[in-house]
């Protein structure tokens, strides 16, 4: 399956929330997941990160990148995902072969956008299933309170 970067990012973030990540970390996972897939990195790490919740890289990687301008990034077996997180930062940042981080928080990241993002049907199904955990089943009362409720539209 291939999709727009925004829909893949949004789905990945919802999947992370559905799997138990707090909202900020889930959003960061979504941003990193897009970079990860666009770079052709292993989907296995994306699955592993979700399986590791409520611990693991979805919680630890944002902390490692939160305030350090440089230093060693301990990726705990998620090296590709760590690189994806760095590439998703809004400012200039790089992670070298030895996992040394260098940031310049005053300079915006210069990102090249791909038109499409590819992911396997299996991963998409996994994400859709996790994201669906956030959805509230339809009820009469919720339907009545939705936008457009209670009106004839043939006016």
């Amino acid at each position: 399956m291939k999709g727009s970067l925004n829909e893949v990012m949004t789905l990945a973030a919802k999947a992370a929330r559905g799997a138990g990540a707090p909202p900020a970390q889930a959003a960061q996972f979504g941003q990193a997941a897009v970079q990860h897939l666009c770079a052709g990195r292993s989907e296995k790490e994306l699955r592993g990160a979700l399986e590791a919740l409520p611990e693991g890289p979805i919680l630890s990687l944002p902390l490692l990148l939160a305030d350090a301008d440089e230093g060693f990034v301990e990726s705990e077996g998620f090296e590709g995902l760590a690189r994806s997180y760095v590439e998703a930062l809004p400012f200039k940042a790089s992670l070298d072969a030895d996992m040394m981080l260098r940031c310049d928080r005053a300079v915006p990241a210069r990102r090249k956008f791909l038109a499409r993002c590819r992911l396997s049907n299996d991963l998409m199904e996994l994400w859709c299933g996790l994201a669906a955990r956030l959805l509230v089943p339809e009820s009469d009362s919720s339907r009545r309170s939705g936008a457009g409720a209670g009106l004839t539209d043939n006016d």
Partner: peptide, 26 residues
Amino acid sequence: WYVSEAKQEPRLGLRFEDPGAELESP
């Protein structure tokens, strides 16, 4: 605030009357 199963429409529920508060949007 929550997202309904129906077309993933954002909605606003009454916390002490409607089901789904545990799935609240942030």
